[in-house]
Computed example of a mutant assay.
Amino acid sequence: MNIFRLSGDMTHLMSVIVLLLKIHTIKSCAGISLKTQELYALVFATRYLDIFTDFVSVYNTIMKLIFLATSFSIVWYMRHHKIVRRSYDKEQDTFRHLFLILPCLILALVVNEKFTFKEVMWTFSLYVEAVAILPQLVLLQRTKNIDNLTGQYVFLLGAYRALYILNWIYRYLTEKHFVHWITWISGLVQTLLYADFFYYYINSWKNNVRLQLPA
């Protein structure tokens, strides 16, 4: 494992910790899109179907279990916890995320590396992850003012994917036959969706002002 992969994994884990800190400690999910969290739960559920059949390493298994457990825990908190769900802005979180799922599934059935159930589901998870942040970004644009923890969560989530791109570049340069076009293109699309947010987040940090996104 190279430093970019490890940094990406740790950044991803930090984003989850920040979100759980907000939900569990502050008992608030204000500014957080349930639609995005449901998409991420779907991503991990379809990506890690091999968790009990194909052992890679202890580290790999632990990370899979963490992301599965935390993604479904966050959805549960936002849907069922009496205090947390009161802060959920359902009226603003109206992105029709279910309409993203069918096109991703069709694309996975057509464009994949191997036409098997696990491989198609793995490819499907890549396509869904590429667009899963859209409901969250739309919600942030609607709510305008964004609290620090929400801003940090989204920034870390985007940084994780950017670090994975560096990981792919490093592996392409150092490993023979390392070519995964589906993963690369999906990851690039996902990172580009964060570009506008990164710009305003970094500007707010440099100027020490509260993060605001334009309409």
Rank of each mutant, 00 (worst) to 15 (best):
Y88G: 02
G187E: 01
I32F: 04
A69T: 15
F52K: 09
V111Q: 01
S7D: 02
F155D: 15
L105T: 01
Q190S: 03
Q190F: 05
T25I: 02
D89G: 11
Q37W: 07
F124G: 06
K206F: 15
Q152A: 12
H177F: 12
Y48M: 05
L13I: 10
L21I: 11
R96K: 14
V189S: 06
R79Y: 02
Y59G: 07
V16G: 07
M78Q: 00
L98T: 13
K82G: 01
T11N: 01
Q212T: 14
T191M: 03
S15D: 12
G31R: 02
E129F: 09
R171M: 15
Y59L: 10
M63L: 08
F155M: 15
S33K: 01
Y170W: 15
I146C: 05
S73V: 03
N167A: 14
A108D: 10
E129V: 04
L107C: 09
W122C: 05
K118Q: 05
F155N: 06
C104F: 08
P135R: 11
L13H: 11
E119R: 06
I133K: 08
N60I: 02
T183A: 06
S204V: 11
H81G: 02
L107E: 02
A159P: 07
D54H: 07
A130C: 03
S33R: 01
R142E: 13
N145L: 14
G8I: 04
I74W: 00
R171L: 15
L20F: 06
T174M: 11
L21R: 14
K206M: 08
T174N: 14
F198C: 04
W76N: 05
I62Y: 10
K22F: 06
T94M: 09
V75F: 00
L20T: 04
R5I: 15
N148L: 14
V84E: 00
A108Q: 11
Y40A: 10
L65C: 14
V56R: 11
Y201P: 08
R86L: 09
L149K: 07
Q141F: 02
T70G: 07
S73Y: 15
R142T: 14
G31D: 00
T143G: 01
E119I: 03
K27E: 00
I202K: 15
K206G: 12
S186M: 11
A41I: 09
L173K: 08
Q190M: 05
N2S: 09
W181R: 11
I202T: 14
A30S: 03
C104V: 11
D147L: 03
A130E: 08
R47C: 10
W205D: 09
